[in-house]
Simulated assay, not measured.
Amino acid sequence: MTALATRAATLADLTNTNGVSHLLRAFVWVKEAKAMLLERDPAAHADLTDPGAVASLLEALGDHRARLLERDPAAHVDVTNPGAVARLLEGLRQAGAGQAVATLLERNPAAHADLTRPDRVAFLLDKLQQAGAGQAVATLLERNPAAHADLTDLDGVVSLLIRLRESGAEEALAARAAANADLTDLRKVARLLEALKSLDAEEAVAALAARAAADSDLTDPGAVAWLLKQLREADTNEAVAVLLHRDPAANVDLTDPDGVVWLLKQLRATGAEEAVAALAARAAANADLTDPGAVGRLLKALREGRTEQVAAVLVTRLENAGRLPQHFAPHGREPNSQQSPPWKWHDLFSGA
């Protein structure tokens, strides 16, 4: 380890800003190698193009960052990546480099940042607000990030909605996301619904709920359960009815017993007893038995409510698969599935 660290410290390309940062962190327990690397003055050679990499090096250098700040990285970094600029802005503020912060803001990253990644735009808005850069925030909002956000990144959309709400500018993104958001990942759709509900965006909630209930894929039981939960909690009764009419109990995949358990719980909470019975029967007869823990949780769920009789079907399947040997201890099981009568070892050899 020490020999490899020493070799890396001696030969590392100092223009690879991210690579040097990773090495400095890796050398935290190899002080000799870290000292060798710092002696080569990586701050003097680091490429200053990527603000995220510069921020990483600034943090990794710790008390040795003065040399890097002397090179005025804020004047050289690319300001089109909002997430990376936000990282550097935060790093400079934590380093107490007020002049560098001012230099970075003077380059007006808010006017040049790419607006397609909603998570990164949200991060930049957050860091600009923390830095008290009100004019930069206003500039960024004037560029209408809601109109440019990529709607396939639903978690990013949620983050941007929250940040825009602080400036009262969330309505346009809420409407656009509700009408056009990608419905592939129902868990993310459910989180978006939850966020819209928390923002009191009633029209957007209704629009997204209608789309999700009518058009979403019903394969993943856990994802369907999350969607059903959010639809119910958002009081979108019509959307709940549409989703139930599509019969998720008959369509969800049964290879995920935990997902089935979650869906059973949400169907019960919705009062969809027929769907509960149908899903319980399917799961008891066809659920995957590979994961004993998950199957145990499914068995417990089936024994609750009005599906306790269905649980016997699953128990029989488990017995047939040899998963419940304790049911036939200590003498075993007969071909007709009944418990064997008591026997002793010498009985097996009598008459042999």
Rank of each mutant, 00 (worst) to 15 (best):
A174G: 09
L57E: 04
L161R: 06
R143E: 02
N108Y: 00
A147T: 12
P73Y: 06
R107M: 07
R67P: 09
P51C: 01
A44P: 04
Q99T: 14
L140T: 02
A60S: 15
N144L: 03
T49V: 11
D150H: 13
E70R: 14
A169R: 13
L105R: 03
H64C: 09
R40S: 04
P51T: 02
D72W: 09
D153F: 11
R176E: 05
Q130E: 15
L140C: 07
T80A: 11
H64K: 14
A146L: 08
P51H: 03
E106N: 14
A136G: 14
A174Q: 05
Q129A: 15
R107K: 06
D47V: 03
R176K: 13
A84F: 14
A131W: 05
G168F: 12
L115A: 10
D63Y: 00
G62I: 09
L68E: 02
R65Y: 02
A95R: 04
A102R: 13
L160K: 07
D78K: 00
A75D: 11
A136E: 11
A131M: 07
D126T: 13
R143N: 08
A110K: 08
R107H: 08
L124W: 01
A174L: 06
D72L: 12
D63T: 14
L151I: 07
R65H: 12
A102K: 13
P73L: 03
L125P: 11
R67T: 14
L164D: 04
A110V: 05
V79Q: 00
L68I: 01
D155V: 00
L104R: 01
L68G: 02
P42Q: 07
T80P: 02
T152E: 10
E142G: 09
N108Q: 14
A172I: 06
A174Y: 06
D155T: 12
L160W: 10
D150N: 15
E171M: 12
A149L: 07
A95K: 03
E142W: 04
A169Q: 15
V77M: 05
R87P: 00
E142V: 05
A46V: 09
P42Y: 07
Q129L: 05
L151K: 07
E106C: 06
A111W: 03
P82V: 08
G96F: 04
L124M: 10
